[in-house]
Design a protein around this nucleic acid. Structure first.
Lengths: 348, 348
DNA sequence: TTGAAAGCGCTACCAC
DNA sequence: GTGGTAGCGCTTTCAA
């Protein structure tokens, strides 16, 4: 860099500082004495630029602290490199690994996550408009949508992947753990352990995951001619696991020897209620099973018998499917289903 | 709407569908027979538009499925209505409530979260450039930055708030739980319980939160003339809590009657190791304390004695401070510190 | 390989 | 209250 060039760069830098502006490609061009399009090209991998030009531009860009404006780029390229992740609070609170894994996988591909969390699974409507306004390239849906809402995305050609949910009526991509199969497996294990009096603690009524799991368990129980099953509604929380068992026994006067919980966290509450409130031996007097493979379920104090979702695989699959459909929107929907892994634990 | 107008709208709709394009304000203007600026005004709250115009435009916009393009808006207004949340995995895994609460608070203000998660607290550098490129209005930092990195944000006038961290050398806004004070309190409680042989299980060495907490504990212990303290490094995980206690006793041959853990999750691992591996009575033979007020800490199987961070208040404070500085960048930095709340539990 | 010019979709300013 | 016009910062033709 010659001295006069140097001075010119510093002058531009000073000018920007005074007006409190961030450097644009135009500023870099001016300071480097090249065209604005040349600067743009220097930041595009694989563009046709001479070595000399690239070096000069990089130099000036560094001095001015220039980085391309991703927003402006999105406007012209029609690619924001942002995806929306719609997740309900429950999922994140009880299964925070999902967000961590998604984030890792997306960041590896240079894609950024716009996070939308829902208080209740039924709040989706409010945020779909926002997802649309922000021009995201795609959406991961870890929350239940109505068919109408699903078709909102479909009609607007926004690629999306359902996580742990699917729709039978609308063609869509999805990644799922086979909840149905997993619950059947758990029921069979409970039967093998000679359990007779079953009860079920469900998740909140608007949770499709809970509904699927409970259908799986009930179906299998009915196949085995066990129809006298007590069902009580929980809300996925530890506390509701405790309370459900207590009210089942104390109020409904139903003493089970097998408790099927719609998720692990409720099962943990259930274990504590069984041990502390009722002084039951688990699993001697009562078996308790959950679903998820949540981290605390494997802690020594619990060692819950459960079915573990292959979360890492599922997240990766969701990201793969979504990114493929962003690259090539003509790809047909794809559904991938993973079997849960039986985790024996010590409560059955 | 007259019939001919109706037809015109439908014609535009058809045209867009054929070219697979989303409706722009210009399309709406064309279809409604008004100017493009009029359409823009109709979507700006408080703009001066006649009732008739507003109604007409809304009507057409609905038919065409028009929503303003937030990206284009950001470009001209220089406001993206996006904030970056930089969080390390540990924080999210062990304290997922933070993200949920931040998300809630930001969404109430119509602000969206761009999520950046770090494998290790030291990975920050890579993502700062991206934060900058995406023109976020502000940043919540729940990860430690070097002073250089902090000044990167400062020089570029990006408002930011440190969460549970602060810098002594660079003026910056922060929201913190008083870790130092909280640990002192715990030490005093342990002393009151007649504990004599102390040990500490720290978090990972790059965690500033762990460092502060442990300094608080050590300082107080030294004040009380207790200098013979065994320190072992954990990594915040349940497993490291277990292993640390075991190696402390079995390998280092140091039998403590008080264990101070840098977070709750390790304390839980520690409790399980004490009870199951060593057959200790907790707290009769050994006291164990944590820090955080993590949800599982209050479960009946543990009932950990700990100091609970007022997470909701802290998240709200962080959002408040950030939004104020986005509205008025001339505001000086502000630090807010909250005392942790002692949660008696049953392990002391 | 380089530069000029158009334009992504919007807001903001200006006349009227 | 309404419409025309400029321009946010960038990528992408198209000539040179």
């Amino acid at each position: 860099m010659t001295k006069s060039q140097d001075k010119h760069v510093l002058y531009v830098k000073e000018e920007l500082a005074q007006n409190n502006q961030r450097a644009t490609s135009y500023d870099v061009a001016r300071a480097a004495g090249v065209s604005q399009s040349a600067v743009s090209r220097c930041f595009k991998p694989g563009a046709s630029v001479s070595e000399k030009m690239r070096k000069r531009v990089q130099e000036v860009a560094t001095v001015l602290g220039y980085q391309p404006n991703a927003i402006a780029r999105s406007l012209i390229t029609r690619r924001s490199n942002m995806v929306a992740v719609v997740i309900n609070n429950d999922t994140n609170l009880y299964y925070p690994e999902l967000l961590v894994e998604l984030s890792r996988d997306f960041n590896e591909r240079g894609v950024h996550m716009l996070l939308f969390t829902l208080e209740h699974e039924s709040d989706v409507a409010n945020i779909l408009d926002q997802v649309w306004q922000y021009q995201v390239d795609g959406v991961i849906l870890a929350a239940q949508l109505s068919d109408t809402q699903l078709s909102f995305l479909g009609q607007r050609d926004i690629p999306f992947v359902y996580y742990n949910r699917t729709s039978d009526s609308i063609p869509c991509s999805s990644v799922q753990c086979d909840h149905f199969e997993g619950e059947r497996l758990l029921v069979d294990k409970l039967i093998a352990a000679k359990r007779k009096r079953f009860c079920i603690i469900t998740g909140p009524s608007d949770s499709s995951v809970s509904a699927t799991r409970m259908q799986g368990a009930l179906k299998r129980l009915h196949e085995l001619d066990i129809s006298d099953v007590q069902i009580i509604e929980g809300d996925y929380s530890y506390h509701s696991g405790q309370e459900s068992l207590i009210s089942m026994i104390d109020e409904l006067d139903w003493q089970p020897d097998a408790v099927i919980c719609a998720n692990d966290i409720m099962a943990l509450g259930c274990i504590d209620a069984a041990r502390n409130h009722f002084k039951f031996k688990v699993p001697k007097q009562i078996s308790i099973v959950g679903f998820d493979g949540a981290v605390p379920a494997s802690w020594q104090a619990y060692q819950l018998t459960t079915v573990t979702q292959p979360l890492e695989l599922m997240a990766q699959a969701a990201v793969d499917i979504l990114m493929q459909r962003i690259e090539d929107p003509s790809l047909p929907p794809e559904k991938r289903s993973f079997s849960g892994v039986f985790s024996p634990g010590n409560t059955l």
